[in-house]
Design a protein around this nucleic acid. Structure first.
Lengths: 148, 148
DNA sequence: CAATATCCGAGTAGATTGCTAAGATATAAA
DNA sequence: TTTATATCTTAGCAATCTACTCGGATATTG
């Protein structure tokens, strides 16, 4: 029951772009360095995010990536679904549809549905803006601790 | 973000034992047949469940497995943790402990913690007894539909 | 002793994960 | 126009995991 590094790295990269939203295109190289992720690997992840319409790219020198929408309009769930596939602890309860044969009479299925909905609920209740605000709070309280 | 067949099959097998709780030892072969699972594979899963103290075994002819406790005292989460490992969408938020270096200042981490807690909450709120009751209800309502 | 089960360890094909690498294409700055 | 900087695209690959399969040892009943 784990997410892979795709979700982890992808979310960190999107968070990085959110922190710099409005500053023009951010190069993937700089994101990769700050977040300590392989640039080559991150290329694949950002390609998926671009195709899904979550980021825009600018090619060429001084190019890079920007969020396609305001950070308040990108949910963590949007990012995870692109990089990890549909949120579902079992194939039989994929959000899109698709059922197994036992379907109706399967008690286990109702459990997986509850798990799915609770995970979706969490991930769709948090936006990139929320994360940026949270990070700023954390940094403030850290400075407070260290400098008084 | 998926459970493997270990969790799926294991839960179905435990549910099968719960439905027959009090009838003496149930052979793995019969469980495997009813639940349409490879017996050899199920052997590995039940071995883990036995070592974790969730089922008891009786060796020899007429032997088999029984739940180690009343179905009302076995949570779905207990089973899943044995077969799938600690409930955690990322390694850094394993229920036991263990952190990454960024720990405190990691905003993503708080998200994974929320996901973990919500999944744990769902799985620990459902017992095998609940599943058996639910299954009986389902069967009743199905007969009602078909035979009136 | 024979039949029936659990126990235990090893092996294995196929898929997935987490990269790495090479080269094509586009753009800004010199 | 050239050069440097980036994105874009595809392919490959070692290590690990998944979902079994198999062989045989051990224990119990009749």
């Amino acid at each position: 029951m784990k997410f892979s590094t795709r979700g982890e790295y992808g979310l960190r990269a999107m968070f990085d772009l959110a922190q710099r939203y409005g500053e023009g295109p951010i190069s993937l190289k700089s994101v990769a360095e700050r977040q300590d992720i392989s640039e080559y690997y991150l290329e694949q992840l950002i390609a998926a995010l671009r195709k899904a319409g979550l980021v825009k790219s600018v090619r060429g020198a001084q190019g890079g990536y920007t969020l396609a929408r305001d950070p308040s309009e990108i949910k963590v769930g949007d990012i995870i679904r692109v990089l990890e596939g549909p949120i579902a602890p079992m194939d039989c309860v994929k959000e899109e549809g698709e059922c197994c044969s036992r379907a109706e009479s399967c008690v286990a299925r109702t459990i997986w549905e509850k798990v799915r909905d609770s995970v979706s609920g969490v991930l769709d209740s948090i936006t990139l803006e929320d994360m940026v605000i949270e990070a700023n709070k954390l940094q403030q309280s850290n400075s407070y601790i260290y400098y008084i």
